[in-house]
Design a binder for these strands. Structure first.
Lengths: 343, 343
DNA sequence: AACGACACCGCAAACGTTTGCGGTAATTTT
DNA sequence: AAAATTACCGCAAACGTTTGCGGTGTCGTT
């Protein structure tokens, strides 16, 4: 059954008319007589004619396809973003080509080139951690391809951007802990050369200052993975008697910290309240359920795609760039109810 | 800077030669003189010429693009599969267009049509739950598009298939519990009209029979989400004194069960050993870390893509289909060490 | 009877490539 | 010196569409 799909030429040949007439008949062009239209349309229907998107794209230089370049797909945040992009794209008639760089600069360069070669109408990109050269991004502009950066933006390239407000998210979470009565809060921080590490820590300290609480450097511990928590467990336990709250840079770190504390006789949230920063669906699984700020990956994806469409379809000035900031939302659960017992 | 990318025609015009010569010079055709080759190649290099993939595809009817149709992207298993597909695809020079059906039959139909319209070289699909009509799959065969089903396969369509062996996975997990000394094991089961529910339950009972253990229907409880566990908490607690093990149809159910038991004074795994079935990275987060069987999404994706390439590149007979079965692997952690204390 | 108006349709070029074939000039062979 | 070979290059068609323009035929109008 391996037959080539039927073309306008085929229809023209079979019906004994010209391809131009078929083409026009199919789109109700006034130059075509009602009979011919009827003939062509019913026949096309019968043989299930579908226009060749490649030919259309080549002629119109419009592919109705966009490219997504992303460090990792297996990551709750990024897959949420993709999902948001996909849904908007689908609604507007766009397809999405997805490229995963695996945090590899070389692959990022090659992926972008492939997308340009395929004449995508626009590109959404979240930079690899190992990208420190930006000419491949500049080339996009020279090729006239609209780009929107999200999450891992490129500060050296002026373009549309959609980001999560890590500073504000951390600030909100910390203020929440303070509101629950915490006076001495520990922060489990990510490396400060990473933007999220820096911004979330600054959001934390900002909230402390705002409430005139001392920010003790001893309370800031560098650990941002489950394993790191176990490695620094002694440090945490040593300080545990002094503190009444923990704000962790991500959920798995927060959860690990809760477990370390629980194994050492502390009760969460009775003795120590805990809040995390959303990196997935773990928060609900934890015991007790973890209060955390949720980064709205789906919304970010939707917003990025909408901005991109704005540029593609020319409803936005070319050199007029926008930065959309999404403030994470606090999801209050049990882990932060200082003083409360959990059954 | 919105300039169209340079074409072979442009080069020909600028250099005062014909497009054919440029084309041949670029691919070292013997008919072209060394000087002209040199001229063309260095010039093409200078202006950063890149062939238009659309034009190439149209002419060769080969797009080097494959389509992926998937129910949900935000799901650890599926995003792992995509990642596996992506990595193989990248290595073989293919791009991937991803379509998310959101378990919607209509969208599945439309997505498939769009992929065919774009002349993808092949399609990887995992069916929506709400698909009970299969003509859209049959149409693919008529259009000569190779298809490989993975995970949610379509039994009515003969094709390549890549699946996880749910029966065997459940059997392995149950046998593991039995090996740890469990005699009376509870099963938290998914609805039996779903394949995974049916297969995993049967794997469970098969292991019991093999070891001549009674399979008590009272021990099979229908609940497959965290919420369902809490809803049926009373039933579980009532039976808890009798049992010494639990095999849950997925990890979040297993974890919820552990928490319910712990809150009622039971110690895991001292009193009751627990095993789950892998649906994500939750198992490590749990307390105690959960013994579970891991479905190898990444491997499944790789295998599916390799099978598809086999058909696309014609190294496999057209009507010769293969079914690849991936047996999940037990990952032994603390939750199943019956009788042991956790610190 | 001649003219304009209108309805309907096809030619050909274009999008960017590749490639069979033919053509010209230079070189080698007799 | 004529013929045969070789080296090199361009024409044109093709992939499947769309679209400006021109062409034919049938009217109706003076």
């Amino acid at each position: 059954m391996k037959s080539q799909p039927i073309t306008i030429k085929d229809i023209a040949r079979i019906l004994g008319i010209s391809p131009s007439t078929v083409s026009r008949a199919l789109k109700d062009h006034p130059d075509i007589s009602p009979k011919t239209k009827q003939l062509v349309q019913t026949f096309a229907e019968k043989v299930n004619y579908r226009p060749n998107a490649l030919a259309l794209s080549l002629r119109s230089s419009k592919t109705n396809t966009i490219g997504i370049v992303i460090p990792e797909i297996v990551h709750h945040f990024f897959s949420s973003v993709i999902s948001g992009i996909e849904d908007v794209a689908y609604g507007r008639g766009y397809n999405a080509i997805i490229c995963q760089t695996n945090e590899n600069y070389q692959r990022e360069v090659i992926d972008l080139q492939a997308l340009v070669d395929n004449r995508v109408d626009g590109i959404l990109v979240s930079m690899s951690k190992n990208t420190h050269e930006f000419t491949h991004f500049e080339n996009l502009r020279e090729n006239g391809v609209p780009v929107v950066f999200f999450d891992r933006i490129c500060e050296q390239i002026s373009s549309d951007r959609v980001i999560a407000d890590d500073f504000e998210g951390a600030r909100i979470a910390t203020k929440h802990l303070i509101g629950k009565g915490c006076k001495k809060i520990m922060h489990l921080a990510a490396p400060q050369h990473l933007l999220i590490g820096k911004n979330r820590k600054e959001g934390f300290t900002s909230a402390l200052k705002e409430h005139k609480l001392v920010s003790d450097d001893r309370y800031i511990i560098k650990c941002d993975t489950r394993e790191a928590v176990f490695a620094k467990a002694d440090d945490i336990i040593r300080l545990a008697p002094e503190i009444d709250g923990i704000f962790a840079v991500n959920d798995s770190t927060a959860i690990a910290a809760m477990q370390v504390l629980q194994r050492n006789g502390y009760s969460i949230p009775k003795d120590i309240a805990v809040a995390g920063f959303g990196d997935g669906p773990n928060a609900n699984i934890a015991y007790p359920p973890l209060t955390t700020v949720e980064q709205k990956g789906y919304d970010i994806g939707q917003a990025a795609m909408r901005l991109l469409i704005g540029h593609i379809e020319g409803t936005v000035e070319d050199e007029e760039f926008e930065t959309k900031i999404f403030t994470p939302e606090l999801v209050e659960r049990t882990s932060s109810q200082l003083g409360h017992n959990v059954r």
